[in-house]
Amino acid sequence: MLAHAIFFYIFSLIAIVSAIMVTVSKNTVHSVFFLILDFISISCLFIMIGAEFLGMIMLIIYVGAVAVLFLFVVMMLNVAQQKNQWFSARESSKHIPVGLIISTIIFFELIIVIGGWKYKPDLVSSMSLNIDSSISNTHAIGYVLYTDYIHIFQLSGMILLVAMIGAIVLTFRQRSGVKRQSYFSQISRERSDGVELIDVPSNKGVKSDD
């Protein structure tokens, strides 16, 4: 148990410190790297409480895909410059009220969750699901997700699909005058389309089309 506690405190310390560093660090790319460190330590915490499927999925989706795209965007845009403008300009105070409102809401939500957990410990045992503890948690999630909650699961998939299509439609623009490669027409080209044999008359030559 001692080793367990030591590892728990190491990972949670890393998670908290890196979460603070995400907001504090000046360089935006450093922020994203701290965010990645945060994700990794949180997935370690998930694995420590026995939710290995959730931990791995967290690693694959958030660290392996989402954070890569974050990094991609942050590196491509010159965000560091923009940020300095925000800090130096007078209008920067515009962002503070919105941020304050959101952080207050999150703070109260956390209080509700922790309060419920501390003062009503039977909350966890009173849930309606009966999960068989003998099967691995991958199987347990599968049994619940694809039976009782299949409609909600499908619905969330649909929402993600709509979001994806929406993003594509918003950024799609058809530029004119761009030569596109058509693989079908390339492959279906015959010899007769491209090569023409001409009997060249003597001393006349051939006039080419282009």
Binding site: E52, F53, M56, I57, L59, I60, V63, S136, T138
Partner: peptide, 10 residues
């Protein structure tokens, strides 16, 4: 481990 292939993939 139970989730070996996920670990490899991750």
């Amino acid at each position: 481990i139970n989730v070996g292939i996920l670990y490899l993939f991750a």
